[in-house]
Nucleic acid binder design. Sequence first.
DNA 1: CATGAATGAGTTTTCATTCAT
DNA 2: TATGAATGAAAACTCATTCAT
Lengths: 195, 195, 195, 195
Amino acid sequence: MDGTKQQRRRGDTRQRIQDVALELFAEQGYEKTSLREIAESLDVTKAALYYHFKTKEEILVSIFEDLTQPIQGLIAWGREQPHTLETKREALRRYGEVLAGAAPLFRFMQENQATVRDLRIGEMFKNRILGLRDILIDPEADLVDQVRCISALFTLHAGMFVLQDLEDDPEKRRAAVLEVATDLVTQAHRGAGGV
Amino acid sequence: MDGTKQQRRRGDTRQRIQDVALELFAEQGYEKTSLREIAESLDVTKAALYYHFKTKEEILVSIFEDLTQPIQGLIAWGREQPHTLETKREALRRYGEVLAGAAPLFRFMQENQATVRDLRIGEMFKNRILGLRDILIDPEADLVDQVRCISALFTLHAGMFVLQDLEDDPEKRRAAVLEVATDLVTQAHRGAGGV
Amino acid sequence: MDGTKQQRRRGDTRQRIQDVALELFAEQGYEKTSLREIAESLDVTKAALYYHFKTKEEILVSIFEDLTQPIQGLIAWGREQPHTLETKREALRRYGEVLAGAAPLFRFMQENQATVRDLRIGEMFKNRILGLRDILIDPEADLVDQVRCISALFTLHAGMFVLQDLEDDPEKRRAAVLEVATDLVTQAHRGAGGV
Amino acid sequence: MDGTKQQRRRGDTRQRIQDVALELFAEQGYEKTSLREIAESLDVTKAALYYHFKTKEEILVSIFEDLTQPIQGLIAWGREQPHTLETKREALRRYGEVLAGAAPLFRFMQENQATVRDLRIGEMFKNRILGLRDILIDPEADLVDQVRCISALFTLHAGMFVLQDLEDDPEKRRAAVLEVATDLVTQAHRGAGGV
DNA sequence: CATGAATGAGTTTTCATTCAT
DNA sequence: TATGAATGAAAACTCATTCAT
């Protein structure tokens, strides 16, 4: 009797702002998405956005924080583990899942690096990536092997968004990308004297 | 005698606009660089920019066209060659050189993908990348090997800009990146039944 | 108590924009009237205009729509009537009243035809005029009589604005203009076989 | 052997500027026609326009002066004649010819009254019209008859440009318009006690 | 007879943000 | 929990005009 949209929406406006904002940011970029656009998409006024968030940047930060939480967990987990190949593989696998689970955000990060750099999330993201890197890389490994690990990370990232024309099925795509990344890390692990 | 700045500048304003614009675009991003800023950097008026270029986008396009000329040559060369591993390696090597020779532009392309997508150079760049891909990829290769080739390209691209903290000497960095990329293509080539 | 200008203005800004804009458009022409000028006249910022209207053209369109409403009524009425001379006379009389009631707008339309043609109101206005024409003209009448009817319309229009130096009293002017226009339509009606 | 366009154009650039400018002014209006546009149409630079004319307005003035010369002749002639009906008819006939002979200019004047008013030609044109009026109007005539004469002038003017959809053949249009105008003046003449 | 290069002043429009209600 | 009304700053772009060559 009262399950109308109007009613249901009570209280979840904040979430809806985040959803719409992320969608638009990913589609058009951060600067080219105006608060007016977001507000109109939600059928509220711009001022309403300011009730829920202090600034435009804050909207993005809040999305980022919510969606990258799992990475924090992954890093914490990785730090506890021994630096074995198996650990690295598992880290990649789990990271792949995180990426797939928040694809629009990561697509956004990928395509708006110049913008992101100047925003608060720039630093945050960099730290997360460095955290991951430390799980994958052995610090005594030679430069080439270190590059392999970074390259694995790039491959995972970019693979999510640029390979549509190579293969339609996203599941197959993910699998292939993960295999290449895993391979790279494996080679690096062997090179570094691992087994 | 009369080699004052005023005199010297005669005739090279167009070039100077391109130089300054690229520098600022790469540093701050396209949207966050205003024509006012460019003009002020050059100590001319905004209107002067419009004497030399019809729009802001045109400035970027002209830079892109000038600096990616060598890629066109590389692609043309590649099309003539047999699809041997040696060809692929040579292509990667030469592409690496192009990237190094126009680093600010490619850094810009990398960090402003969302913007670039909507600009004329988006399509242009995509075509050039696809041209390169066709040199590296064997169309009958399996998906994983195709991903390896794309990954090689990513590695080359990104490696130019993200690895500063891994190694100071840019020459060593380039060499390492190139090695990883070449490796990837080599594996892909073998997988596809090459020798 | 609190009837200050600031307070009174609450809520009527939109109307005030229309008023000032029409005045300036009529005085100086559309293109030579800048939004800065309108804003300054009202002691608000340019951006305030954009809160109330999407574009400069929209301001004009909204004025036009508001002020030509009565013509729509007149045309609707005319369509219902028989094509008698009396109908035509009454139409002219009423149209004359409409013109007098929105003189600045019609003066503007008259003096900015080249501009109006390219704007949305160009088409709108044309349609209204054609609607009026169909009330006055008998389609089987000969060309000369048709021209008489159009001429009656012109006379009415232009008469409002160009005859100041012939007669000071605007009421007398209106009466004279209306008489000439009515005469023209009467002649046309007789010529077409009416009585 | 040397009758090429390039050669022929020697010396007639001034004329060509006037021609193109009038065409564009009539088509788009004065303000919406930029000097850049005129220059590009002629394949010369803007600066070249300034060699031939001191300002944009001067271009228009020169066109106006050249093309309204015949009106001056007509007015001079009219002043010498007795104020008979025959004189008035002849004046209308000749004025109709002038209008037809410089249709683009008069279309321009008609459609850009707001602009013209602020330009030097505004005053000039007004004087010519007043000169004509004095030929047609008997100053002791009553107001209605004076309006008839002005209306005759309007009819002639506007008839040139607004009646395309009433009749295709421009000659027939002119004849009809002239008849209506002549009629108006004739009625006015009778009313004023003429024979 | 004309151009290349530039300018100063202006235009319309957009944006993130604020605040009283 | 929102809205209506507004602002200040800035953006991209256009225009008539100038002047040394």
